[in-house]
Design a protein around this nucleic acid. Structure first.
Lengths: 190, 190
DNA sequence: GAAAAAAGTTGAACTAGTTCAATTTAATAA
DNA sequence: TTATTAAATTGAACTAGTTCAACTTTTTTC
């Protein structure tokens, strides 16, 4: 089954009955995305949520000064969307771009919203996932403010080896919040 | 009624029936907290979630170098906890300290967890609140990485005037991720 | 209301990280 | 395979923000 990975991910986070799981999963549709292709671009409105089956995506913004700022990467078994644009139906400041040829399952906003109502376990699923994500953001803020660029780089490499191996240094630098030149210098002086 | 504020906050985020609301709210207990008192200290395990009725709290960590790092402030109508410690029942890295004499409603972890099961609207409430919080964290990361300290300071003052008025510059600096000396210099050169 | 403690200010020396520009290396496309 | 484009490296000059220390002002405590 193509969406076994999705089903495992779901049941890891919330208790779904077999029928609930089937009902929920049937709203997801498969999409192939080629390297460098965009799933969402700054200025659009996000009307989907995605679950990565294969490949890797980068979720980033480009600020007024033209600097790229990476919010996060989404590899296999990760969820992705612009939650700000999705919730408020405001124009997105984010770009979601495939860094490698990728396979993804998508669910439309309207479907997701109605599933919150029809399947209570869906509420629990996203409540739990959102709270886990909050923990991650909180930890990241602490790291950003208390560690040097070098320490953050080492942390990233050690904790996300499967992502780190798929992306280039410019992208890592934009995630760490430093220039790619400085990242190059950091790596030098080991 | 003492917890009108809580009830308004809840119904703003999720549809509760009158009886659900009463049932949920009766698990909250009131607590007075004096200025400088701690609701949680680094090393403890967080077993509660709180809702601020009056006053102001600071949620911060002290890193190895001894620097204070403020995650957020919680004033009237805000929720507060260490979600990391609460979820994982791990020892907390955070301190939650009252910055002024405060009044707060607390709910115990065990009660909250069982209410997720007994009242489905509670799932929705915290799903929605968590997602809104995620949006806020995402926006803050972008600001932190794309704006100067001065810009972040101005943003904070303009967007959280009721908090800014209750706290001192050392605390603002630790929220902005800069030294208090530098904040002082920023304010000077207007 | 005086004494003590904490917060805020200022300057000088410093450092982590940036910017720009030139060069090399690697990846992509025709 | 070669030509082209993008990524990575390096150095030099720079800047945003830190650190430390001394001093002033405000707040707290007894």
């Amino acid at each position: 089954m193509i969406n076994n990975l999705l089903k495992e991910n779901i049941t890891k986070n919330a208790p779904f009955s077999k029928t609930e799981l089937e009902e929920f999963c049937k709203y997801f549709y498969f999409k192939n995305i080629k390297k460098t292709e965009f799933l969402l671009e700054q200025g659009e409105i996000c009307k989907f949520e995605g679950f990565v089956l294969e490949g890797c995506f980068r979720i980033f913004t480009i600020d007024k000064k033209g600097n790229e700022n990476t919010l996060y990467f989404a590899a296999k078994d990760w969820w992705l969307m612009d939650i700000d644009s999705f919730m408020n139906q405001s124009t997105s400041n984010l770009n979601i771009q495939a860094l490698t040829d990728s396979k993804i399952l998508l669910i439309n906003r309207a479907d997701k919203l109605s599933l919150y109502e029809s399947i209570p376990a869906v509420e629990k699923l996203f409540r739990v996932m959102s709270q886990k994500a909050l923990v991650a953001w909180q930890r990241r803020l602490i790291r950003n403010n208390s560690q040097t660029a070098k320490e953050r780089y080492v942390y990233f490499i050690n904790n996300y080896p499967n992502i780190a191996s798929k992306i280039n240094d410019k992208q890592i630098a934009s995630y760490l919040g430093i220039s790619h030149e400085f990242l190059s210098k950091i790596k030098r002086r080991n």
